[in-house]
Design a protein around this nucleic acid. Structure first.
Lengths: 90, 90
DNA sequence: TTGACATGCAAGTAGCGACTTGCCTATGAT
DNA sequence: ATCATAGGCAAGTCGCTACTTGCATGTCAA
């Protein structure tokens, strides 16, 4: 559960979530190119790949394999109640 | 705004917020002792003080000075909509 | 099968962040 | 005035993390 907060701590990972919230089911290379063009982020493929690993470990993205492609989708479940802890919406 | 996520990334700081959510208006020493007794966290006074600085910089706690005392209170405002960014509750 | 494409793995580097350590300031009680 | 209390400041250490680098694996098209 603390993994969610750690995952959200990085601005690049938050931008990746933004991008996946805008368009679901993207491959690693799609994410890389859209981060570069839309968000002016020029990160390496490997860097983005590691960020995706962190997001997946935190349960913030789901992964679907198809041949040599790997599609990533946002999973909003861990985000639903992260702040309720202090907002009394338990 | 990214400061909020970075502030929440540390488990000790989240516990401090828990403690302030339970009892408002505590001094540094009160927070230290209650972290130790209630949450089994034995951190140094300086460590806690630095955590409080981070939380204050992120706008997550408010501070009130009174003589040689400094009282800390939780500020829930930054927590209200941090997840709405991806939950479409804009 | 050969080659191009999409991704994975792993070791190394650099910088940030949590924590320590030591000393200093200031307030208030006696 | 003296002393204990509450807190502040700053340099240094250590570990984690983001990022790089280089190579390996696997899939598909020709």
């Amino acid at each position: 559960m603390g993994d969610v907060f750690k995952a959200l701590a990085d601005p690049t990972r938050r931008t990746i979530l933004d991008e996946l919230a805008d368009r679901d089911d993207q491959t690693l290379f799609e994410i890389c190119s859209r981060l570069l063009t839309k968000h002016r982020l020029d990160s390496t493929r490997q860097a983005i790949s590691q960020h995706l690993d962190v997001l997946e470990a935190a349960g913030l993205i789901d992964v679907r394999r198809e041949g040599r492609y790997k599609f990533h989708s946002i999973n909003r479940a861990p985000l639903e109640h992260i702040a309720d802890r202090w907002l009394g919406r338990s």
